[in-house]
């Protein structure tokens, strides 16, 4: 791998010219203010209807990089953006190479290989053409509060070229269209946003990739900005090559995920700070409901009493409360039908 920041064009060891990393900051043209969100996705068609519209509304441009989905994720992304009237803000790219999974597979893959997570991330983020890059996952749902925070940061950071954004997000385990479990325990924050400049690129570390450098000027986003979807009937740990999660402190979050998953599947006691949330009668999908009440749930320590659902106010008002457009129906209780606790 060529040293970070030394050149604007990074070759891959396999020699695929069309997948050379060409950084946007090297074009010579001025970068537009604001954020570009980059989503690296694989088989996220189910989550995309809830993930994409809020992030499309919040940042100037969204780049979805599909890595070999078999569930029609790119098509769903384009359809969802079209339904939201935001197709102009979306770019869908394909990265066709198998990418090493986190853990031992990643460790064994050189960082300048197209199969490396590090290379994949650098290639994906090289498509950013704004002053700030925002890493986003295909299962992260912005709340209305989070949408406003990102929209404001676009101008608040206009003259700041060294800030990094850190955010904590809670996991939401979706059981059915009406029921989910929210993990309100505080996790360690991760870096999600940084300046789009030669100083900020991904490097290889043991289990996965890291963005460097670790800046001193870090802005902590509110904890109520977003939550992360986990479908109880899906294989949540498929992108890990070793699911023991017992090696480093970095994997503490994964260990907790695994513990909650098992508890929900096996009907064993849940860890502390995991709360069950059920959407009220009326057909509102649990994810739409959580988007509206998540901030209050977080701030009230797990209750949603006396919550004022956001009203339409001004041009950037919230859409009416309804299920995400283009969403596939959520399966009912998991295959074994054991999750019935409340």
């Amino acid at each position: 791998m060529i040293a970070a920041g030394s050149l604007a064009r990074w070759q891959n060891r396999e020699g695929y010219d069309e997948y050379v990393v060409r950084w946007g900051w090297a074009d010579g043209g001025a970068l537009a203010p604001g954020f570009t969100a980059v989503l690296r996705v694989k088989d996220e068609a189910r989550s995309i209807p809830w993930v994409l519209p809020p992030i499309l509304r919040s940042v100037g441009r969204v780049v979805v990089v599909d890595n070999g989905s078999t569930d029609g994720t790119p098509e769903v992304a384009e359809r969802v953006a079209g339904t939201a009237g935001l197709s102009a803000n979306l770019e869908v790219l394909s990265y066709p190479f198998p990418v090493s999974r986190c853990g031992p597979e990643h460790l064994a893959t050189p960082p300048d290989s197209v199969h490396s997570l590090t290379y994949f991330y650098n290639w994906s983020f090289s498509h950013v053409r704004t002053r700030y890059a925002l890493k986003w996952d295909g299962d992260m749902v912005l709340t209305p509060q989070g949408e406003r925070v990102l929209r404001d940061l676009a101008w608040q950071l206009q003259a700041s070229d060294g800030a990094m954004l850190r955010m904590r997000r809670a996991a939401v385990y979706v059981e059915s269209e009406r029921v989910a479990y929210v993990d309100l325990a505080y996790s360690h924050g991760e870096l999600w946003g940084w300046p789009n400049s030669p100083n900020y690129t991904f490097i290889k570390c043991f289990d996965w990739e890291f963005i460097q450098p670790f800046a001193d000027h870090i802005i902590e986003l509110p904890d109520v900005a977003c939550f992360e979807l986990k479908w109880l009937d899906a294989e949540e740990f498929a992108h890990w090559s070793d699911t023991s999660f017992d090696k480093t402190i970095m994997n503490a979050r994964k260990r907790r995920d695994q513990r909650i998953f098992r508890a929900l599947h096996q009907g064993s006691p849940l860890p502390d700070n995991v709360v069950r949330v059920e959407s009220p009668n009326g057909g509102l999908h649990i994810i739409d409901y959580l988007r509206q009440v998540y901030a209050a749930l977080r701030r009230n320590g797990g209750t949603v009493e006396n919550v004022h659902l956001p009203s339409v106010n001004g041009r950037a008002g919230e859409p009416a409360l309804s299920s995400a457009q283009g969403a596939a129906p959520t399966p009912g209780p998991t295959q074994n039908g054991e999750i019935q606790r409340g």
Binding site: Q156, S160, I219
Partner: peptide, 20 residues
């Protein structure tokens, strides 16, 4: 007069204690 000052006040405004 510093345009970068907006990032500084944004940072403060995200503090949950301040919000509360």
């Amino acid at each position: 007069a510093r345009p970068s000052a907006w990032a500084d006040t944004a940072k403060i405004s995200f503090d949950e204690k301040v919000i509360a």
